[in-house]
């Protein structure tokens, strides 16, 4: 049954850049509606892990399965990517397009929606992220926090099954972090399957169903936020947490 199927399954995932092995055999299952937060020191491979899920990085070996469909060279990667939204550290909005166009473009090109339909969806999502009045603005007229909320709306417009967040608040001024986290929190409550790389431990504690500590190219420890933050078993996890908490 579809109900029992994992949304994301990673099996023995390896990724090397030249002779530098970043991921050393990662296995991970993420359930439907589960919110998984990935923490770990920089260079530990957590962003690479996230980027392998939608094949922005092609794994050196191992498999990625999204909602039952394993990615192989025969599978059209674009149809899978359309089901997996991604939010980037630096927003990556399209600067030559209005906010509205940023959100409608892929709906029209990938989902083959009509302009009217795409705009309706876009306006609805802008309302959801609290930016209704910014539809006709260009990205450079928005603050960082607003841009990131638009980026989330852009990803949601594809009606994805999974959302990936790659340090979504790291490039933001401190006072803008919460407006983005609030949107993510609502999304989690709505039942979205989420995989987030973040340094926001407050968010992880509050929202995550599971926290993964990644170091040295693998998942070193995982558990509920309480287990990882308060009762870490691994020395490296404790050291990392003592530095950031």
């Amino acid at each position: 049954m579809a109900e029992n199927r994992h949304m994301i399954e990673l099996r023995d995932l390896h990724k090397s850049f030249g002779s530098n092995e970043i991921l050393k055999g990662v296995n991970l299952d993420v359930n439907r509606s589960e919110v998984v937060v990935i923490i770990g020191p920089s260079g530990s491979g957590k962003s690479t892990l996230l980027r392998c899920v939608n094949y922005l990085e092609v794994p050196t070996s191992g498999t990625v399965t999204i909602d039952g469909e394993t990615i192989t060279p025969q599978v059209n990667i674009n149809t899978i990517r359309a089901e997996v939204g991604m939010v980037f550290q630096h927003f990556n909005l399209f600067p030559h397009m209005t906010v509205l166009r940023n959100i409608t473009l892929a709906q029209e090109r990938v989902r083959r929606k009509s302009k009217e339909e795409a705009e309706e969806t876009a306006r609805q999502l802008l309302k959801q992220v609290g930016l209704s009045e910014k539809a006709d603005a260009y990205p450079d007229q928005l603050s960082g926090g607003q841009q990131q909320r638009v980026a989330i709306a852009r990803a949601l417009a594809m009606k994805p099954k999974i959302m990936l967040f790659d340090e979504p608040t790291s490039a933001l001024d401190p006072e803008m972090v919460n407006e983005v986290l609030d949107v993510m929190r609502e999304l989690a409550e709505s039942g979205m399957t989420m995989l987030c790389v973040t340094h926001e431990m407050g968010f992880a504690r509050q929202v995550a169903d599971r926290v993964l500590f990644v170091d040295g190219g693998g998942i070193l420890e995982q558990g509920t936020p309480d287990e990882v933050f308060n009762h870490a078993k691994e020395q490296r996890t404790k050291e990392f947490l003592s530095k950031i908490l």
């Binding site: 939608n54 359309a82 980037f88 630096h90 990556n92 030559h96 473009l105 892929a106 990938v110 852009r154």
Partner: peptide, 27 residues
């Protein structure tokens, strides 16, 4: 053009050529 631009396009499921035509080349 920043690589993040084409990554954003591809992450939405657009093809390489759709990304080039709509996002990279206009910029």
């Amino acid at each position: 053009i920043d690589r993040g631009q084409s990554e954003a396009g591809r992450s939405l499921g657009m093809t390489w050529s759709q990304t080039m035509v709509n996002i990279v080349i206009p910029q």
